[in-house]
Computed example of a mutant assay.
Amino acid sequence: MFGLTNQIRRCAVSVPSNIAEGCGRNTSKETIHFLFIARGSLYELETQIYLSSDQNYLTEERLKITLNQIILCKKLLNGFINYYRQK
């Protein structure tokens, strides 16, 4: 459980950290690169959440709530990526 918890925290912290780093870059291309890294971390987080559920660390209700939040974050991040692609 400790390993899974640690990995979830690392993924969750990685998302906003990469968004922030991307926004601090000089070009849209560099920004997009870090936004894609953030999106990858979201997919990794989603996998860790499914694993947590498989191990019965999460209730079905908590799983649904968390996955809905991850989906919302993916949509927001994809919108951000599309915005920078148009620049």
Rank of each mutant, 00 (worst) to 15 (best):
I49E: 01
T27A: 10
R62K: 14
E61I: 15
I19A: 03
Q69F: 08
T5K: 12
S28Q: 06
C23T: 14
S14V: 01
N82V: 08
H33G: 00
I65L: 12
I37K: 06
L67C: 11
N82C: 06
K87Y: 01
I81Q: 04
G40E: 11
L51H: 13
G79D: 11
I19N: 03
N6S: 15
T5Y: 02
R9M: 13
F34D: 04
S28R: 07
S53H: 15
K87G: 02
L45N: 08
Q69G: 13
G79P: 02
C23Q: 13
I37F: 00
Q86V: 01
R39H: 03
L72A: 15
R9H: 05
L51K: 11
E61P: 09
Y84L: 04
C11R: 00
E44T: 02
R9A: 11
Y83T: 08
K75D: 08
L67I: 15
S52A: 15
A12F: 00
A38S: 08
L58E: 10
T59K: 09
I19S: 00
I81P: 04
N6T: 14
G22N: 13
A38N: 07
A12N: 07
V15S: 01
N18K: 06
N82Y: 00
S28A: 09
A38H: 04
S52L: 01
S28L: 01
K64T: 12
G22F: 06
K64C: 03
N6I: 08
I19V: 11
I71N: 13
Q69S: 14
C11W: 00
A38E: 00
Q86R: 06
S14G: 12
E46K: 11
Y84H: 11
L67M: 12
K29C: 05
Q7Y: 02
N68H: 02
I65F: 04
Q48P: 13
L63S: 06
F80Q: 05
T59P: 11
L63Y: 15
T47D: 05
L63G: 03
R39M: 05
S14H: 01
L51R: 11
P16T: 05
N26Y: 12
E21C: 10
Q48R: 13
V13N: 09
K87S: 06
S53V: 08
N6C: 10
N6Y: 04
L45C: 09
C73T: 13
L4I: 06
I49K: 01
R85Y: 04
N82S: 13
S17I: 02
E44D: 09
R10P: 06
I81A: 04
A12S: 11
K64R: 14
I81M: 03
S41K: 14
S52T: 08
I81E: 02
A12H: 03
S41G: 13
E60K: 14
K75Y: 12
N6H: 10
A38I: 00
N18S: 08
Y43S: 15
L63E: 09
L35P: 01
A20M: 03
C73A: 15
S53G: 12
